[in-house]
Design a protein around this nucleic acid. Structure first.
Lengths: 226, 226
DNA sequence: TCTGTTTTGCAATTTACATGCCAAATATTA
DNA sequence: TAATATTTGGCATGTAAATTGCAAAACAGA
């Protein structure tokens, strides 16, 4: 999810050129792909912010790509914009079911199309820097954590630790992995220290009884946020 | 299903050399076979991740090999890529019916071919690490088991035991075999211990009455997952 | 720079957990 | 029914995790 990359998979025509030009003016970098398969291959390497694609792409249709993207944890955050020549409500419904975020049609003005892409882009950027799990909210930009809306003061390490775990719910992190990711590659800190920080974090999250509601201990493996 | 082994059964030419080289660069190990029969013989010993073969192999055609592979429980997980000099839609349909996973033709760019093989490889690895049986789901990567979507916490041994049984449904495992596969080759653990772990596992799977819905006891032989 | 405060890391202690085995109870087979 | 297998609960043991207090380090404000 580098920065402001947009992947466009549309047949080359005047419309595509205009959209690309306007997006570039707005500070996005634009990449083209031809087929649905190409799109799927590309996202294995790079995660664009948004993909704009025709509903009727060759090889793998836009709907199918959309569905696949939304299935994978790593790619489901990508904003998906489906493009059709004309508006068809059934298609819109189908697309929404597949998890598409926006629909644009050839008969809309470029101005409107760009406005909607920009709006989507903002929504995604905010969503990416903002994690909400149960009653806990984590805001990366503000460096702030809230529980039920009330701010919780975490120290530097506690915040990084929480963010690491919460940004990849369900994933188990070993103590070693946590050390490397929170403290950095070259650490001379004991594994046990992680336990202590987990405890202090749990405390601040308002957990005074065992087992924890948020941070689960996987015996012999590590911790995970649930 | 060792790691990232790819078996190539294609006539030697520039194309084959290029593909092999690129695959090796991507971290696969590549093995060659000549005829369809050779391929069938080989998979009795080793299970590669993917087989790339010409549709018109000598002795046994690629289609025939494909069909045979997909019939056998042990080999049907192998990804099959059929290669033809030119695209023929009828052949593609035939191949799909036979269970082939991908088709590549000489006129595609190497880059695209490699991308599609990589994508296939990922799909297979994911599918192999995820078992779904009845209402039980087992995810090897996440070290997580779910029943009706609700997570079940298993210990290390319990998880390995369940995974072993579930990965080969219907197969009966003797206690000795279970010991070797779950505890490792050199164990000094009683056979009876297996029973105890089976019991604990059944308990966690929510089975409090006899006989078990998931893990069947074969008197005098062992256990199997049904 | 000094001083008080907070944060952090560690070691010692306590607690929880997973595992293996036994023995009694129960089931299966012949 | 006798002989054999399996299930089950309990218990001991070793190991992993949680907790706690303390001291060093980092930090903030005067």
């Amino acid at each position: 999810m580098g920065e402001r990359n947009i992947l466009i998979a549309l047949p080359e025509n005047k419309n595509r050129r205009t959209i690309s030009k306007r997006l570039r003016q707005d500070g996005y970098s634009v990449i083209y792909k031809r087929s649905g398969q190409d799109v799927l291959d590309y996202v294995q390497q790079e995660i664009p912010l948004i993909i704009i694609m025709g509903a009727d792409l060759p090889k793998v249709s836009g709907w199918e790509v959309c569905k696949q993207l939304k299935l994978d944890r790593l790619t489901k955050k990508i904003g998906v914009v489906l493009y059709a020549d004309e508006r068809d409500d059934n298609e819109v419904i189908l697309g929404l079911e597949m998890g598409a975020d926006e629909f644009i049609t050839a008969d809309e003005s470029i101005r409107e199309i760009i406005a909607r892409i920009n709006a989507l882009s903002r929504r995604i950027i905010i969503a990416n820097n903002h994690i909400k799990v149960k009653d806990i909210e984590i805001d990366l930009d503000e460096h702030r954590v809230r529980k039920d809306g009330a701010p919780i003061d975490l120290t530097y390490i506690q915040f990084k630790l929480l963010y690491l775990l919460a940004s990849r719910r369900e994933d188990i992190f070993s103590r070693q992995e946590i050390l490397e990711r929170v403290w950095g590659k070259r650490v001379y800190v004991t594994n046990r220290t992680v336990d202590v920080h987990i405890k202090r974090l749990r405390e601040k999250l308002g957990e005074f009884q065992y087992p924890s509601e948020y941070i689960q201990t996987i015996h012999g493996k590590g911790y995970r946020f649930i």
